[in-house]
Amino acid sequence: MVATDGPSVIKLGIDDAMAGLVLSTEAHWNQTEADWRVFLHDGVVFGIRDGVRLVATAALLPYSGNNAWISMVLVSATHRRRGLATHLVDACLETARKNGLTSWLDATPDGVAVYEPLGFTPTLQLRRLKLVKSTQASLPAPSTATLDALRARDRRATGFDRTALLTAFAQRSGSRIVAAHGCIALVRDGRTARHIGPLFADNAAEALALVHAVARSENGPLLIDAVASQAAFLEGLTASGWTIERPFQRMRFGPATTAAEEMPFAVAGPEFG
């Protein structure tokens, strides 16, 4: 148990995956039970219960180079405006501090107002986009690529070693790593929509071509979390039917510990970085 001055903050275990999924589903997020198991197996997930019911969570997912991602900050509608999220984020930050970790997160506009006073500084911006598709795919899937190729490109773009995360994604039923003309991306299932990302490319035209190829080979809705500074890519997505759902602001607590060699076109998701 983590000591706090407020409600009892506990560490959750792998058996809490379904309870976490209830919270993220209530918030209309796209996570699956498998996503929750990543946080519970590879990270630290803090929670608050009301009796036996899990009513709030926050997760700290460590990466290499003394970095960690804070996410899954969720509070049930019945327990909001009681400071529960602040207590849980404080638990994440204290754990990160004890372990010498720089903390990162992707915040909604409302979240930015919460995290800036805590000492988080903004870095890049993201835009979540959605493509609503018919139920019929029209073309074969793009060529597949190896997990090693994706890992290498991901390391260049993030500065982190995320082998465990990318391996967990790639091993799921329905996941595929696709590539064409120097571009590479991962496509995986979500609760309500398939997710494209991370996506790496040498230029916007090639990134767009790969996304269009994926879209033509997929059934149902798609989500992508595009890097806002990749303006030509973002404009190409919206021109081809993708709609912006919400912005995210990437923020960092602590010193920068790595230097990226390239900028991704889309990330793994605001919960994963």
Rank of each mutant, 00 (worst) to 15 (best):
A34E: 12
L61T: 00
W104E: 02
T102G: 03
A77R: 15
R127Y: 02
D225I: 10
F46Y: 10
L101K: 03
A207K: 02
Q31I: 09
H195N: 10
V227D: 08
R250F: 04
D15G: 13
L147I: 13
L150I: 11
E245Q: 15
Y115D: 02
H41W: 06
G241Q: 09
A164N: 05
F265T: 06
V112G: 10
A164D: 06
L150Q: 04
T163K: 02
D106Q: 07
P140V: 11
L199R: 00
G100M: 03
A145N: 07
H181A: 15
Q171L: 14
T144Y: 08
E235T: 15
K130P: 02
V44G: 00
V214E: 03
R97G: 09
G83F: 10
G111N: 05
D110M: 10
E245R: 14
G51P: 03
L210P: 03
T102I: 05
V114I: 15
H212C: 12
A215P: 13
M18G: 08
R128S: 11
T238Y: 00
A215H: 07
L147R: 07
W69Y: 04
E94V: 09
R81Q: 12
R151I: 15
L93W: 00
V187P: 04
P247A: 12
A77N: 10
R97H: 09
H79R: 09
A170R: 08
R176Q: 13
H28K: 14
F160M: 06
E218D: 13
I184E: 03
G43F: 00
V9I: 07
T86V: 10
D35Y: 01
L129G: 05
G83I: 07
V2I: 14
T102A: 05
T238G: 07
D50M: 12
S64P: 10
W104C: 05
R80F: 09
C92K: 02
R191G: 10
N203K: 12
L223S: 03
S64I: 04
V178K: 04
R188Y: 08
R37T: 08
T144E: 15
A179K: 01
G100P: 04
Y63L: 05
E235C: 15
P264Y: 01
E271K: 02
H87Y: 09
N30F: 05
V55P: 04
G65N: 12
A68K: 00
N66W: 00
H195I: 13
P270T: 10
A149L: 10
Y115S: 05
D90M: 07
R216Y: 10
G241V: 06
V52T: 09
K11R: 14
P109D: 06
T57F: 06
I10G: 02
S175K: 07
A152T: 09
